[in-house]
């Protein structure tokens, strides 16, 4: 109990940083992922190619390597980022690659007849996308996107290698201080689990709400 009381402020701070990394990267990653998904289904070959390349690179390499390249590698090119921005940048790019595929799946999962019905009443492409396709694509993509958010929350622990003092780093320092590694890591593990359980519950609620819009 002493251990918990002593480290409580540190824990709270670590929790805050972990949530910051996860939420900000998810938001940025979603925005970028949506653009990549649109590029991937666009009629322009160059855009499609760029999107395919982006997804291939950021899904095909370990997140840890991406973080290290951004934090340790970029300074050689004169770009020096603080640890937290480095981690957020890497996590956002990584999430965008996966999320773009989730979004693309959602868009392609909407029945082709919906496009046809919209164009049969003379609706232009973008308006069809916004009014007809997007609302349905979101619903289809929600389970996969929710899963990706949870995975991203856990991936934030890799930010510890570039000295970001988030939960995992906090666990290490608590363990280092008193050699009670088991307790420290179990406690932090439980915290990740708690965060993600709450996210799952939220996702379930969102899915039910989106489902209601159809009945």
């Amino acid at each position: 109990m002493d251990m918990l009381a002593d480290s409580f402020p540190m824990l709270l701070r670590g929790l805050g940083i972990t949530l910051l990394l996860g939420v900000v990267s998810f938001v940025l990653g979603s925005g970028l992922g949506a653009l990549v998904a649109l590029a991937r289904i666009s009629a322009f070959r160059v855009l499609r190619g760029a999107a395919i390349m982006f997804v291939s690179v950021f899904r095909g390499t370990p997140l840890l390597i991406q973080i290290m390249i951004i934090y340790f590698g970029l300074p050689q090119l004169g770009v020096q980022l603080e640890p937290v921005p480095s981690a957020i940048l890497a996590l956002s790019l990584f999430a965008a690659a996966y999320l773009s595929e989730n979004f693309r799946g959602g868009i392609l999962g909407v029945d082709k007849g919906q496009w046809e019905a919209a164009s049969s009443i003379g609706m232009p492409y973008w308006r069809t996308f916004r009014r007809i396709i997007f609302p349905q694509a979101i619903r289809i993509a929600t389970p996969a996107v929710g899963g990706r958010f949870i995975a991203l929350m856990k991936d934030t622990s890799l930010a510890s290698v570039v000295t970001v003092v988030e939960l995992t780093r906090v666990a290490e320092s608590i363990g280092n201080a008193n050699f009670r590694y088991m307790e420290a890591f179990l406690m932090i593990g439980a915290l990740y689990w708690l965060i993600n359980t709450l996210l799952s519950v939220g996702q379930g609620m969102l899915e039910r709400r989106l489902g209601k819009a159809y009945a």
């Binding site: 007849g113 919209a118 049969s120 003379g122 349905q136 159809y214």
Partner: peptide, 16 residues
């Protein structure tokens, strides 16, 4: 297309 209406075999109503 605005001058022609179309009714599809599978209805294609907007479910939302």
């Amino acid at each position: 297309r605005q001058q022609t209406g179309m009714v599809f075999q599978q209805f294609n109503l907007f479910p939302h």
